Simulated scan of single mutants.
Amino acid sequence: MFRFTQSSIADFIDLLFPILCLGCKNSLSANERVLCTACRISLPETGQHMEPYDQNHLNKFAGKVPIQFLASYLYFTKAGVVQNLIHSFKYKGQKEAAKELANWYGHQLKSECKQLEDIDVIVGVPLHKSRFQQRGYNQADWIAEGLAEALDVPMRTDLLIRNEFKESQTRKNRLERWENVKTVFAVLNSELVCNKNIVIADDVLTTGATIEACAIELLKAGCKSVRVLTLATAHR
């Protein structure tokens, strides 16, 4: 009786159901994950971790909340590869892609950035429980997990909660976004936050209103410092 080897079965399944690059939609080879080599090489990296005090980004929080460090991995442009990636894990269930990208970024940060050497914990921007149930996961937690693995620090989901459900931020301006989120977050246990250097992780940095609201609650609870890492930001 003819028997497939395990690798032959895997090759046969890949032939019938090829895993596609989330950038260009071409088939991935056996050693590629999320993106093909060509798409990964062409990713629009910001390099912001090499210039952590870039005022164009920190000015989003100037006079509002002290953010000690802020960096995003990629530049986001409409209809570009990065938008495809964000949409794939935010709306199409590809949560593992969020973790993989964050892991790539985390390894880069570990070797090239000294601003994160003393961090104690990474938290993802939380979803309200009803949105979590609807989506089935929180993409920010998967980003936080990917970063935490690469940076070799803990990631926690029990420090910060979103206690109110609010409508989408997508079409709101900076003031509207702030009004929409300024009271929705809360720290669950201040003892776990007190005197800690905390990184807030999220998918895209836009106006910064959501990050600001999270940071305010963490600092009120006695957090020592807040730093921010996102996978993408608008190209300035």
Score class of each variant (00 low, 15 high):
Val81Thr: 14
Gln48Gly: 13
Val65Gly: 06
Pro18Asp: 01
Asp11Glu: 14
Gln68Arg: 14
Val81Pro: 00
Asn26Trp: 04
Ile9His: 09
Glu51Tyr: 13
Asn59Val: 01
Tyr73Glu: 11
Glu51Asn: 14
Leu74Ala: 02
Lys64Val: 14
Ser42Thr: 10
Asp11Asn: 10
Cys24His: 09
Leu35His: 10
Asn26Lys: 13
Leu22Asn: 05
His49Gln: 07
Tyr53Trp: 12
Gly63Arg: 02
Cys24Arg: 08
Phe61Trp: 12
Leu22Glu: 06
Phe61Glu: 07
Phe69Val: 10
His57Lys: 10
Gln48Asp: 12
Thr46His: 04
Ser42Ala: 15
Leu28Ile: 01
Ala10Pro: 00
Phe69Met: 11
Phe12Ile: 06
Asn31Gly: 03
Tyr75His: 15
Ala71Gln: 07
Phe69Ile: 01
Phe76Ile: 08
Leu43Ile: 04
Leu28Phe: 08
Ser29Leu: 08
Asn26Gln: 15
Leu28Val: 03
Val81Glu: 00
Lys25Gln: 09
Leu74Asn: 07
Ser29Tyr: 05
Phe61Arg: 09
Ser72Arg: 06
Lys64Arg: 15
Asn56Asp: 10
Ser8Trp: 06
Pro18Gly: 03
Gly63Ile: 13
Ile13Ser: 06
Pro18His: 03
Gln48Ile: 13
Thr37Ile: 14
Lys64Asp: 03
Leu35Asn: 05
Ser7Gly: 02
Ile19Met: 12
Ser29Phe: 03
Val65Lys: 00
Gln68Trp: 01
His49Tyr: 10
Arg40Met: 02
Cys36Phe: 03
Ile67Asp: 11
Gly23Asn: 06
Gln68Ala: 13
Thr77Gly: 02
Ile9Cys: 04
Glu45Leu: 13
Asn59Met: 09
Asn59Cys: 11
Cys36Lys: 09
Thr77His: 14
Glu51Cys: 11
Ala10Phe: 11
Phe76Gly: 03
